[in-house]
Design a binder for these strands. Structure first.
Length: 450
RNA sequence: GAGGUUGUGGCUCAGCCGGUUAGAGCGUCGGAUUGUGGUUCCGAAGGUCGGGGUUCGAGCCCCUCAUCCUCCCCA
């Protein structure tokens, strides 16, 4: 016999957890639907060629590869095999991989289905993704993303809409959050203003850590990455700007930077037309790892909780370009359902109403009454009352214990007398109250309570 | 990829400087006049301690594997 176990970074979900997760998914989905997004689903696995090169070198490392079927080593090049070079061997023995996020599969979907889609196309997708990351708190190897993206329009009102979605969904889930916004063009402007436009990516990686390591840490990191002292000084003064409006003069020589500011301004203009329940905050240090973002970038942090971001997204000018469909702009967001779960648990904000659903447990004494009880069971269910019949007739003690453990609020005793009179004796497990009535009347009484 | 933590009955854990038959709580099962629970009482079953090694002898030492956590990066 072997001891069962789970792969690192994966989890089972019991009934209570599964219900709570369903609550999260349902809440997010309802907001997506309200904002006009349509559901799609894509396969868990994609061709490796679809996935590789989309997430940077680190991302490629974190892809789960699926070994080819059959005698896959036979098909591999002997020389590559002998070289023991994994990077070279992988494409020869694995042609598929598990999806790393939902955005790239979505881009693939759009390209393949362009004939059937009407643009702008708004889709949502709630499915698991896999990353071969080292697991730790709030980080799993299998987790769900809940994505909403609009593709085929560069209107900034969608950015505002997506922020509204974040705001509304987290309000519904009772999690106070801060929605952070920045713009990749602003980051580029910083680099341009400091004369290090060619080192743009390195720079953003460094300043992304500002809130974590402080300005000293950023300075150190930039130095280590080989930035000149005057460039670092330039970056620092820009970061110190009190507001995004204050960046205008700094970006006098950066058209891209000014464009970024214009975009932010537009988004805030839209947002002024609505009332939000959470704060939207410009955060110049917000960078986000994914290389394909080109415009606004968003990230959501739960207030007062030690937890990485519980949502993120942004604008990508040309995501479908790599798949042969250039010029299609998209913007999207993602909810990290698993982290949201952890936050809700830490904050104890799950609704109490997510209880077990079975309302009545029927109990019988012997075969004849069990058969009659089954008939009653069917009638209850037909009336829409979630009911359950204890499988073995006999001792009530056992049956009552079962009802108590399963949190079933009503226990219906069905014996000789009940069978002959067409009644049920129902006990309210909470109050201990118990009385007999015809089955029909119980059905009526119990349906009202739901 | 680097560092740390933990690994004992179904679950949560205890186990002093290595030394005779490894403990507890919860849970499970049975019982306290067989049409009544969640309270109580009594009793029982169930581990050879992740795997391998060192040692006269190991749950406590070494190795290995797994887990979780931290860094990197990210949801």
């Amino acid at each position: 016999m072997q001891k069962p176990s789970l792969p690192e970074g994966t989890r089972d979900f019991g009934p209570e957890q599964a219900r709570r997760r369903a609550f999260i998914f349902d809440t997010i989905r309802s907001v997506f639907v309200k904002f006009g997004f349509q559901p799609i689903e894509t396969p868990a696995m994609e061709n490796l060629s679809t996935l590789t090169g989309k997430y940077g070198d680190e991302g490629d490392q974190l892809l789960f590869k699926i070994l080819n079927n059959g005698d896959y080593l036979k098909a591999a090049d002997a020389e590559v095999l002998a070289s023991k070079n994994s990077a070279r061997l992988v494409p020869q023995i694995a042609k598929r991989g598990l999806r790393y996020d939902l955005t790239v599969p979505f881009a693939r979907f759009v390209v393949m289905n362009r004939h059937a889609l009407t643009f702008p196309f708004k889709r949502y997708q709630i499915q698991p993704v896999w990353r071969a990351d080292r697991p730790q708190k709030g980080r799993y190897r299998e987790f769900y993303q809940c994505d909403a993206d609009v593709i085929g329009s560069d209107s900034l009102h969608y950015e505002a809409e997506l922020i509204q979605i974040y705001d509304e969904a987290f309000a519904k889930m009772n999690i106070p959050v801060t929605i952070k916004i920045n713009n990749r063009k602003v980051l580029y402007g910083i680099a341009e203003a400091a004369g290090v436009a060619d080192r743009f990516v390195d720079m953003t990686v460094a300043i992304d850590k500002l809130d974590k390591v402080g300005i000293e840490g950023v300075r150190k990191e930039l130095t280590e990455r080989g930035f000149a002292a005057e460039a670092i000084a330039g970056i620092e003064t820009t970061l110190a700007a009190p507001s995004w409006e204050a960046l205008r003069p700094v970006f006098s020589n950066s058209e891209t930077g000014r464009k970024g500011l214009d975009e932010l301004e537009r988004v805030f203009q839209f947002l002024k037309k609505t009332r939000l329940q959470n704060a939207v905050q410009f955060d110049i240090t917000l960078a986000r790892g994914l290389t394909y973002y080109t415009g606004c970038i968003l990230e959501v942090a739960a207030n007062g909780v030690q937890m990485g971001s519980i949502g993120g997204g942004g604008r990508y000018a040309d995501l479908t370009g790599v798949f042969g469909m250039p010029g299609l702009s998209g913007v999207g967001i993602s909810f990290g359902a698993d982290r949201i779960y952890d936050v809700l648990e830490m904050l104890e904000r799950f609704p109490e109403t997510l209880a077990d659903t079975v309302r009545v447990l029927l109990m019988a004494f012997d075969e004849p009454t069990h058969a009659y009880a089954f008939e009653c069971l069917c009638r209850l269910r037909a009336a829409g009352i979630p009911a359950e019949l204890y499988p073995e007739p006999g001792k009530l003690k056992k049956q009552f214990e079962y009802a108590a453990k399963c949190n079933i609020p009503f226990a219906a005793i069905i014996g000789e007398t009940e069978m002959q009179t067409g009644t049920m004796t129902v006990k309210d497990q909470q109050t201990g109250e118990q009385r007999s009535m015809p089955v029909e009347e119980w059905i009526e009484a119990l349906s009202k309570q739901v």
